[in-house]
Structures are given as C-alpha cells and as structure tokens.
Design a protein around this nucleic acid. Structure first.
Lengths: 231, 231
DNA sequence: CACGAAAAAATTTGATCATATTCTGGGCGA
DNA sequence: TCGCCCAGAATATGATCAAATTTTTTCGTG
C-alpha cells in the first residue's frame, strides 16, 4: 500500500463532466472563434498539452476535429496552423453564408416567439455596450451568440451545423477586421432583423440577414485585399 | 546487442506513405460514402482496430474527424453509429445541395476544357455500364466521381469542401435507395449536364445540376418517408 | 582572413502503441 | 420489478520511435 495518495483522491468529480477531449475542443474552438489566435499562427500539440494541462491523445483528437471543421489547416508536413483566408476563399464564404444564413433567418422567423425576441434584444444590448467600450472580444462573442440563438430557433439542425462551420472559417479574420477598423464602424443590421422578427416577416428577416452577412464579409474582404497587395 | 532484428527492418517504407490515421480515415470514409455501412449501424473502436489492423489512436482520430464531417454521429453515451437521416434532415440537405452544387456546376462550366469533358464522358460511360449490370457499388462510386471531378474544375476549394461534407451525410442513405428502387430507375441528368458543358453554358449546367440533385434527393426523401411510416 | 553555403548533429515535435483507469449496459439474484 | 455486480468498451496517460526543423560545424572560395 503506497502511502502517497494519488493526486488527492482524484478530485471530487463534480457530477457528469464532459470528457477531456471535448473540453479541449470547446476551449480551442472558442479561442479560434473569438480571435485569440491570429491567422497563420502555428498550433503544436505539445504546446497545447502544456498550456491546457491535458494529455496528448485528447489534444490530438480536438485538433483533428477542428481541422475537419476548417478551423485549423494541416500544412502537408506535419504542421498545423490557423488558416489564412485568401480573397477567393472569402468570396466563396460570402456566397455560402448568404445562401444558408438567410434561409436560417427565414425559418427562424416562421417560429418566432416573444421569448426569442427578448433574448435577442438582450444580446444586442450587450453587443452595443461592447461596441461602446471597445471590447472586441465581447463584441465577437455577442455577435456570434446573436446568430447562434437565432439559428437554433429555425429548427434546422443540419443547416445550423453548416453555418457554425462557416463561422469557424472566418472567425480569426474577423478579429483582424476589428483591429483594422475598430469596433465603431462595424455593421449592425441586427436592429433591422429584430424589426422584421417583431413584424413576423420571414422575407424581411432573411433580407436583413443577407445584408448583415454581406456587409460583414465585405469588410473581411477589404482587409484581405489590403494584406494581399501589401505583400 | 539484440540478435532479433526489430520487425524485419521496419518494412521497406515505400516512399512517402500517408500516416496510418489518414489511411484509416480514407477507408472508413469510402465505406460510408459507398454504402458499405448501413444507417444506424453501430461503430466501435475495437471493432475497427481488429478489422483494419490499425492501432487504437489512429482509429480514434479518424472517428473524430468523421463525426465532425457528419459522416458518423456521437450518441451521447459513448456510442458512435452511422447516422439515420430524418425527413427534415433530407429536406435541409436538398436546399443546401441545390444551392452549393448548382453554383459549383456554374463555376466549373466557366472553366470547362475538352479534357474535362472527355473525363466526365468516360466516368458517365462507366456509370451507365454499372447501371446496366446492376453494380450498385460501382454506380455509387462513379456518381460520386462525376460530381467530384466536375467540382474540382470550379476552382472553388471552400465550396467543394462543403459539397463533400454534404455527400458524406446522405451517402449511406443512397445505398438504401438503390436497394429499394434498383439501379434501373435512378435519375441521370449527367447527359444534360454534359450537353450544357459542351455548349459552354454555365446557366444550363447549373440548372441540370439542380435537377440532378433534386431528383436524387427526392428518392432519398421517398425512402425515408416510407421507413418513417413503417415504424 | 572573412563570408557563405552545404552537411551533419541536436533538439523539437508528431505518430503510434501498450497499458491503466473509468464508465456504460446488461445479466443475475432478491 | 428493482438494485447490484460484472464484462466489455471507451477514455486517458506516458513511453517510445520517427521525422522535420534548427543550429552548429566545416569546408571552400573570394
């Protein structure tokens, strides 16, 4: 019988906690989505095992998932990094986003409830406050949450899933946009969208979403073109 | 010095071979895409380590990737299985496929070359032969290849990537369709598409693709509805 | 004598495996 | 029928091996 207790009786294990690889995935995903990792930044397994304090296998699994999501790219040799969007990539993302997300908005509007509108209003208020204080991370999170909550109402799991993947692709670039233009000048078609939702008008909601997507992605495109000609 | 050579000098290592987890991923992917696994069928790690002769870690990574692709589903408890499409899922897939794949066809038509047409004609001939002989697996592979080759010409990597993910979702169900209707009655708009490509008409190509997608997915939908009311 | 390129050693990182631990689900007995 | 136990499967760790990059060393040339 060993006298040393193994890591303090293995921690209390507070109820059903998600597996480690899931926790690692969520953490990395948030870091990518909310701009804590810059486009082009290399991602190493061993670096993450250290910074996240997790084992090697869970980290590997999380990285594979994120590569499949398009949130990370495998660079041929064994390196993995945060993707750098090309203008051509951005153009395609605009097309797919407008198609899928405006349809999601249309469907969400068909199932709109007062509770949904209240929730979206709260998120939008937090978003405005983040813009006012220049809180880039807060802005990105609120913006993402606004879209996610809306799409959850569309009762279209497959399409919402695809929309999520789209966001993972341009997430890191959105941070760059904020760094370039500041939070003041960011587009905000959320007010139009809320009006359309209150009116129960699916077509107007879809149109507002298409506008929101187009404006946001145009800024991404502008930054990417700027970077392209700089090099 | 140990007299026993370590596993026969570690095998010849024939040039640059892909890592094991990549091989496992490709094999599993093909099995799912071409209907070797039935919807609902459970997938176990240990079962795959045995049948594929690979270690446990590569198999885990491949499964994670496929879950992220939507080609497998994680069932909450630690079970993984081939997904069963609901009619609602199929309806959403139809919408997204028509949107993305017809656009890919349009763009491919803008970059059409004689070599592409020749390649597609060859694939379509093989497809017809598979239909004639009732070779379901051959039909599925040719059909997939036709679309993949066409999309590669569109010079739109992001959209082609999304299209690939869509195929992974309904692949298993396509096999069921073939089992239900036989290969004789499957839709084939490839002839129209080839005509439009020869004419260099992007709009007609996109339209033919939309028709092809719609017809194919309608059959999937029919089988799913049939199964739904049976239960 | 100094500078640069190529080769080689060393370090860092990724891939795989064997093994220990934990959890889920079904069977058995009360 | 309900609860407990056990078999089996999944999760997670650390060790080990292989590959790639980086650094260092060496050699040749201006």
């Amino acid at each position: 019988m060993n006298l040393i207790k193994k890591t303090a009786q293995k921690a209390p294990k507070s109820a059903a906690d998600p597996p480690v690889h899931e926790q690692v995935y969520q953490k990395l995903r948030a870091q990518i989505l909310f701009g804590e990792m810059a486009p082009g930044q290399p991602v190493t397994i061993q670096g993450l095992t250290d910074s996240l304090g997790a084992g090697m296998t869970p980290v590997r699994e999380a990285i594979r998932r994120l590569i499949s999501d398009g949130a990370l790219v495998f660079q041929g040799n064994r390196r993995v990094s945060v993707p750098v969007l090309s203008p051509a990539d951005a153009e395609q993302l605009i097309f797919v986003r407008k198609s899928i997300e405006s349809e999601l908005a249309r469907r969400a509007a068909r199932h709109v409830t007062p509770a949904l509108i209240a929730e979206l209003e709260a998120i939008d208020a937090a978003l405005d406050s983040a813009i006012a204080t220049g809180d880039v991370s807060g802005y990105l999170q609120c913006n993402y949450q606004f879209h996610t909550v809306l799409y959850a109402q569309a009762q279209a799991a497959v399409m919402a899933d695809f929309a999520d993947r789209l966001w993972l692709r341009f997430g890191p670039s959105l941070r760059v946009v904020c760094g370039r233009f500041g939070t003041q000048n960011l587009p905000d078609r959320h007010k139009d969208m809320l009006d359309a939702l209150r009116a129960g008008d699916p077509e107007a909601t879809a149109e507002a979403m298409a506008q929101d997507v187009e404006q946001g992605m145009d800024m991404v495109d502008a930054v990417l073109s700027e970077q392209a000609e700089k090099s």
